[in-house]
């Protein structure tokens, strides 16, 4: 099975994330990395490939120069090849144009069966790119899987996911090719091994521009965005309140007093 796994290079979510002057996410001033939620997608892609005898896992990212780090990490984890779409015109793209560029890049990766995504990027966290990508590629989307399995023969392979929804746990399936996304419930991602790190150095990475994909630069980037950020406001930090130490039941009393004063009871 041939799989394309989409990963995003994001500002570290444990660092102080902020906006730059043009009100886009500051990607330069904050350390970046492979979105940790996309590691789960890489893991599931590698496991899917291992079910068969043949197959290639291509890691794909759309992002700035530094996003090459994300590709490298995925190659170290075990992906076979990398594609990095980088073009100054892409900066500031919204989900609409990001999905456009991703779709064209997926089309250019020859013969794929599954496009595997993370559940959401840790910066924009919209969780919409997989559905948009499926819409553009004209294939079914199986999203937010907590487990993934395949069945069927070479003629018609079915991908099936389990999804833990709000009111039910569902089983959802479709015949390949499909776009899928997996959650952090799908199983811990592997760490790159020393062997993996060494092997990654020899793995092929292609760098594509918009021109390579035949995408008109007018259709992407900040100037083409269908939504614009008008203003951002940092929420004032919460001021630490009163903390009491429970001694022989005093904590419960104080808690009830607090809730009562605030009219919660």
């Amino acid at each position: 099975m041939n799989i394309v796994v989409c990963v995003k290079y994001v500002p570290d979510s444990t660092a102080d994330r902020r906006f730059s002057e043009d009100l886009t996410v500051d990607r330069a001033g904050v350390d970046g990395l492979l979105s940790e939620l996309d590691e789960y997608a890489v893991e599931q892609a590698l496991q899917l490939k291992a079910l068969g005898e043949h197959g290639t896992v291509t890691v794909l990212t759309v992002g700035p120069e530094q996003a090459a780090d994300a590709v490298r990490k995925a190659l170290q984890m075990g992906c076979d090849k990398g594609v990095h779409v980088v073009d100054d015109a892409i900066a500031g793209s919204d989900a609409l144009s990001t999905s456009l560029v991703l779709a064209e890049a997926v089309r250019k990766v020859a013969a794929w069966d599954v496009v595997m995504c993370g559940m959401a990027s840790t910066d924009g966290s919209m969780g919409v790119v997989p559905a948009m990508l499926a819409e553009r590629l004209g294939v079914p989307a199986l999203t937010l899987g907590s487990s993934v399995e395949v069945s069927g023969d070479a003629g018609a392979t079915t991908l099936r996911i389990r999804r833990d929804g709000d009111t039910a746990t569902e089983t959802i399936e479709a015949t390949l090719p499909v776009v899928a996304s997996v959650t952090d419930q799908s199983g811990e991602a592997r760490y790159p091994s020393f062997k993996g790190i060494m092997a990654a150095k020899k793995k092929p990475v292609e760098t594509w521009s918009l021109a390579d994909l035949g995408v008109d630069a007018e259709l992407v980037g900040l100037s083409a965005a269908a939504t614009v950020v008008a203003s951002t406001r940092q929420r004032p930090p919460r001021s630490a309140g009163q903390v009491v130490i429970d001694v022989g039941g005093s904590g419960a009393q104080a808690l009830v007093e607090f809730l009562s004063a605030k009219k919660f009871i």
């Binding site: 009163q242 903390v243 904590g251 607090f258």
Partner: peptide
């Protein structure tokens, strides 16, 4: 978690919560 609370109790939840529940039920 105590950095963001308006009110906090340092204690064992298995004793604090049942006692608070009892007190709330009594008041009601």
């Amino acid at each position: 978690i105590f950095e963001l609370v308006d009110f906090g109790v340092v204690g064992d939840l298995h004793t604090v919560l049942p006692a608070a529940t009892e007190e709330i039920t009594r008041r009601k």
